[in-house]
Design a protein around this nucleic acid. Sequence first.
RNA 1: GCGGGAGUGGCGGAAUUGGCAGACGCGCAAGACUUAGGAUCUUGUGCCUUCGGGCGUGGGGGUUCAAGUCCCCCCUCCCGCACCA
Length: 918
Amino acid sequence: MEQVEQVDAPHFRYTAQMANRIEARWQDFWAKNGTFHAPNPVGPLADTRHPRYGAPKRFVLDMFPYPSGAGLHVGHPLGFIGTDVYARFERMAGYNVLHTMGFDAFGLPAEQYAVQTGTHPRTTTEENIIRYREQLRMLGLAHDPRRSVATTDVAYYRWTQWIFLQIFNSWYDPSENRARPISELEAQLAHLPADERRKIVDSRRLAYVSEAPVNWCPGLGTVLANEEVTSDGRSERGNFPVFKRSLKQWMMRITAYSDRLIDDLDTLDWPEAIKLMQRNWIGRSRGAYIDFSGIRVFTTRPDTVFGATYMVLAPEHEAVDRLVPDEWPADIPRIWTGGHATPREAVAAYREFAAGKSEVERQADAKEKTGVFIGAYAVNPANEARIPIFIADYVLAGYGTGAIMAVPGQDERDWEFAEVYELPIVRTVEPPSSFEGKAYLGEGPAINSGFLDGLHVAAAKEQIISWLEEHGHGEGAVTYRLRDWLFSRQRYWGEPFPIVYDEHGHAHSVPDSMLPVELPDVADFSPKTFAIDDADSEPETPLSRAKEWVEVTLDLGDGPKVYHRETNVMPQWAGSCWYQLRYLDPTNEENFVDPENERYWVGQTPQAVSGGVDLYVGGVEHAVLHLLYARFWHKVLFDLGHVSSFEPYHRLYNQGYIQAYAYRDSRGVVVPAEEVVEEQPGIYVWNGEKVSREYGKMGKSLKNVVTPDEMCERYGADTFRVYEMSMGPLDVSRPWDTRAVVGAQRFLQRVWRAVVDEETGEVTVADEPAPVEVKRLLHKVIAGVREDLAELRFNTAVSKLIELTNALTKLDTSPREIVEPLVLMLAPVAPHISEELWQKLGHGESLAYVDFPVADPAYLVEESVTYPVQVNGKVRARVEVAASADEAAIRAAALGAVSISDPKKVIVVPGRLVSIVN
RNA sequence: GCGGGAGUGGCGGAAUUGGCAGACGCGCAAGACUUAGGAUCUUGUGCCUUCGGGCGUGGGGGUUCAAGUCCCCCCUCCCGCACCA
């Protein structure tokens, strides 16, 4: 980026060079003086002399970034700047504000880079963090640097491991609906033999090892959580195929918290869209289990049981083999058998067919129902009808009981299947005539349903559930879509499990005193990967090759013995499940957070009954991953008495994305966006050649990256901050437009000029009183800006400040009584220039703790009001009326202005307008 | 398919929740200062107009003295979920 000093610009103009000098100076000042250190109630970060010690608090949090090698582009800091503006504002408004930044630094990219180059992931990670810190410092973010942590710090992941052990050493007690220490379960089972007790205890832990169908990704050489697999069956990272297969893995019993994770959403100040996504992800369905000849099905529509004319089991359902007879029953339709000689052959063939389908094919085929009769029948408990049992892949093994009663009359999928396999269709809800020839899912009176006839859906459900329970045919039930969280990864760059195995293969926790379990150095960081479609490959963890680390002699209370360490590592989500708590007490070696500090910063309050962070800003992409996992961990910590809040993040706000235009030439090759010029509206040219424009993410591949470094150099950090905050509402995505940044610069230049003579550098403010109309504007702006900043409406706050500045520009000299509040109001958005001007105005202290201006109500009322006068809905005149005038006077003035003496109707809206119907 | 959100000048976006549509900024135009302008400043800028005014918030209808805002129908785009019984 060329940076030509503007030789002829006035010496004291607010140019990029001037901005950069000011910014460097104040960044040094803040760092040196610890300006943004937030005092804790107790511990090493307590400071009783701090102006905000013991004041009401605000914990303002960003979703911490992964420090990638590519560095930041202008899209990344949007949320960081937003929280910074809010944090600075709240600090000036009297709050003790905790605002800092950490790094989510475990993860795949550093590991993959390590595999390629041999550089240790820690080296790469630390370099990237340094680079990130530089970039963030340049933006003037008011962080408390003492509280910054990286998830890869040994001193940090020691506590991640400790929390894991809390989870491992607890169980969910359904009768109390909370997690309890495992020792309490052991005590309850004290009468049992040790072996049996261990078995039960291990089966109840919240973190447990299980042999279960998991997502195995040979291309990455690791297993993945459901949340990390895309809907077309590929890995979110790398886009490799993922296969379901049974492997022994660590799981977290998040399903125990399904109800609380749904119900507690009501206590949170989150966007409804995110709450909805979490509710859908957990997927609670209320209905009933019904037993059909010993096969249990789940249904949300037990009221339709009289219409169940067949059953369908998932192809993998465990009852199938038991049920399949040797021969086909007599007189069945040909299509039921799939042309196979025996049911056993038909089942085997169908299973092979279904298993061979990829996730993509399964979805593409969703509308064409396939299946096969297994040769057996069940009895519908409601009407004792004999109904055939099918297997079909439209019934999923992983949901409900893996078996359904098929009610084609009231279910579209069952209807389609019934049509293909010529199965009877019995309607049990009276459909409107428009539903001729298709299933009806709606409301209506029951028909063909025996004792339910005439009842509407809700009443019929209730009736049939009590009938089922009375007769032992089933019970009311709730099921969930959420599965337990697959928690182990076959990677290197993650937290080691604090778990060892004895000679029987039993898992033991490493005692707290032996934490942290440090990652060993290894020569080869790569998990063993395979051909991307090699579904039968076996995972091999990098840590398993560190033989001398794996084998360890410990005394776990029964003398020294040899144990083998767990060689999986935790998923990247682990560190982000609790980092905000460590910010509160980053150096505590006795505890992951001191309880008093925890209560002060994130405890429950009347305004936030859940407790938790006061404002959490980040992208929507974490709607179900990080935010669900973190809530789960937090609830476990709450149940075990380690935290006083039952939710980690009370208020959530999703910032939008900054996107950018990209350009391609006639061959479709991306050209550097920076070099494209718009010759005419809609005509874009690069190197003399016409190019086409598209719109998308900022990134290397689209050659449209703009970095904050570049913007700071060309305009200064304050201008960059003002621009990002004024582009639009924080939660809306918008296109980046470097051309438009100059508007923010001009604004700051005007503010500067209002205080400083560009030629001489003299401060030029006047101490005489300001004109009353400017004072009115000032107080209107103060009231507006306060409200806007508190509501995160930064774009309108900036526009109000510009208005005030423009009014100031029109005066010959700037009155101090306007300039000083303007500078203070500008400070959250453009802190460096504001500090500089504040100092030039004669103040010795940083303005970071100066009270934010408060509007004087006396100036908020106008002396006179100009009323638009509408006649039949059109504005025909304006009248100026004293603010104190009553309705009659306003009405008289309005009628006079439009010369109407006998109107049909007159509506006077005081303070707004007059509307006349003539 | 189901669920959620959004459509306002050439562009980004405002509009105290039913009360003067287009604040503020970019761009554009004219002017000032300049050797110069991709710097800065000033003024103007929704569209049409016979200069009276008319038309305008995705389209169509409605309620109202008054609709971007409320109601009904339709269109488009974005996001999430996707055979979840």
